[in-house]
């Protein structure tokens, strides 16, 4: 296990390195300069400003400097937020994004699992069709459409929750979390239903029933635990979906999060912030996938991570 984790950690660093390198050079192909008023200056004034920001050096040199600072955990200084480090920017904006993401993930998977179980246990009934319909809606409608609908009906028309902004405590987080949760919810419902039906037809469930275990015990202890494994597999990609969803959902609800910052840094050619947010999102995803892999072993001891002799 330790060996496995060690190996995984090395791969994780390698992945981050490749992402940082690729992003750095791809970013250079963005048209325009990170200096907003670039075209207002004459040649020698431009040269002075470029030198000040360190973008006068050849690209490989800039790359080396960036990677050196990155190794020290320094993401550099934003071109747009003058004099402010990208680290601070991310820290300040991390909280709302994290709250929304975590709430969406928890709400989405828990409700999704319950819906999926309901469908499986009441197969081919109204409950089954209802939950399937709901799941298909959730998968096919993007989160920002949900966001707009929720915002229009629940906030604007019925005045039950705030239209947007991040100044109303927990109330501010409900609608964006629900909008983001629709994807994970639908996905988990579909997965759990399929797996549960299969597990419920297996021999050991019949055995449990024969032993006289009650319905709840069978459903949660025996069936669900086994049905969870494939769901855990997709949690990584689901987390990725949450990030991409949050880019737009944060904008719609005017949430001061990272996703919103990511979009505007690209629009303004803010190289340091583009790098910082990309690396942050990548690190987040890589860690989530790593945790998911570790979770396998815990949920299902049959999956042996070190693969082989142990």
């Amino acid at each position: 296990m330790v060996k496995y984790i060690g190996k995984r950690l090395i791969y994780m660093f390698l992945t981050m390195f490749l992402i940082a390198t690729a992003t750095f050079f791809l970013m250079q192909t963005l048209p325009g300069s990170p200096i907003a008023s670039y075209n207002k200056l004459n040649e020698s004034q431009r040269a002075i400003v470029e030198k000040k920001y360190g973008i006068d050096k050849p690209k490989p040199v800039q790359y080396a400097i960036y990677m050196k600072n990155l190794a020290k955990g320094d993401l550099g200084t934003s071109f747009v937020f003058k004099g402010k480090s990208v680290n601070d920017l991310l820290v300040n904006r991390f909280k709302p994004s994290f709250i929304l993401g975590a709430q969406a993930m928890v709400f989405g998977t828990v409700v999704g699992i319950l819906l999926g179980m309901l469908a499986a246990l009441r197969q081919n009934t109204f409950w089954d069709y209802g939950s399937t319909f709901f799941a298909i809606l959730g998968i096919s409608i993007p989160s920002f459409v949900f966001a707009s609908l929720l915002q229009y009906w629940i906030a604007s028309e019925w005045h039950l929750l705030p239209v947007g902004l991040w100044n109303d405590g927990w109330k501010s987080s409900i609608l964006p979390s629900i909008a983001l949760a629709m994807g994970p919810l639908a996905l988990s419902a579909r997965f759990i239903r399929t797996e549960m039906i299969e597990v419920l037809n297996s021999d050991y469930i019949t055995l449990a029933k024969a032993k006289g275990a009650n319905g709840y015990e069978i459903a949660f202890k025996h069936a669900l635990r086994n049905a969870l494994i494939p769901l855990v597999t997709v949690l990584g990609p689901v987390a990725a979906g949450l990030i991409t969803g949050s880019l737009v959902v944060e904008q719609i609800f005017a949430i001061p999060g990272i996703g919103e910052q990511f979009v505007s840094s690209i629009m303004t050619n803010d190289h340091a912030t583009i790098m910082g947010t990309t690396l942050f999102f990548s690190a987040f995803l890589i860690v989530v996938i790593f945790i998911v892999d570790i979770l396998y072993g815990i949920i299902d001891p049959r999956i042996r991570l070190s693969g082989g002799k142990s």
Binding site: Q151, A155, V163, G164, Q251, A254, E260
Partner: peptide, 14 residues
């Protein structure tokens, strides 16, 4: 800061 124009109008109407 509100970047989405539709959201801005909803906040105004509210």
């Amino acid at each position: 800061v509100v970047k989405d124009a539709a959201t801005a109008v909803k906040l105004y109407n509210d």
